[in-house]
């Protein structure tokens, strides 16, 4: 599917993968996250092939599916993620308040709007201490203030020595000093 993709990411860097619809952005992300295997070539994490190292414990992956169960509340989602992914115990109310969801903690997520559900899904980034974030279209359905909030979170994460790989169609409005751009294109 891909040809001559060669990239390297170090701590503190952000990699933005661009390209038209269907160019293979999500597929590339899935390969980088270890969810799919490349036909040819290899992915390394800290000089070890993905399958050998402790890669999964260092990864926070948020795909274009939100992972939101409509019948559960925002707080219940946070509770599950904390236990399931070993995230540090953080006050769920506070995280949700930061994301502008104060007062909506106990409502089943099916009653929230698409953007609010996306915010719940992204709350994982406020819970995790894992260094590598792989995010597929994180800005989908978010309003301007949430997009800005998320980019501030990105800056904070990068300053703490984390790394981010993301796909987006929207240009990043904030300036990230250590940003790379990988543009995927068709070649018939």
């Amino acid at each position: 599917m891909f040809e001559a993709v060669n990239l390297q990411l170090t701590a503190g860097q952000l990699l933005q993968i661009g390209g038209k619809n269907g160019a293979g952005k999500s597929s590339l992300l899935r390969i980088l996250a270890g969810l799919a295997q490349p036909d040819d070539g290899e992915v390394f994490w800290q000089n070890l092939p993905l399958a050998d190292g402790d890669f999964p414990q260092n990864l926070c992956f948020i795909g274009h599916l939100s992972g939101i169960q409509p019948q559960l509340t925002a707080l219940e989602h946070l509770e599950f993620w904390q236990a399931a992914f070993g995230f540090t115990a953080t006050d769920g109310f506070q995280v949700l308040a930061t994301l502008g969801l104060a007062g909506l903690e106990d409502i089943p997520c099916q009653l929230l709007s698409a953007g609010q559900q996306r915010r719940v899904s992204l709350a994982r980034l406020w819970l995790t201490t894992r260094p590598l974030w792989i995010l597929d279209e994180p800005f989908t359905a978010l309003d301007q203030s949430a997009i800005l909030l998320l980019q501030h979170k990105f800056t904070e994460h990068l300053e703490n020595g984390g790394a981010i790989i993301l796909t987006t169609h929207q240009p990043l409005t904030q300036h990230f000093p250590a940003a790379q751009l990988l543009e995927l294109a068709y070649r018939w």
């Binding site: 996250a33 270890g34 969810l35 999964p56 414990q57 990864l59 992956f61 948020i62 795909g63 274009h64 599916l65 939100s66 992972g67 939101i68 169960q69 399931a84 992914f85």
Partner: peptide, 10 residues
Amino acid sequence: QGVLEQLVAA
């Protein structure tokens, strides 16, 4: 809903 995907990745 993508929950499995996230669990498999982790």
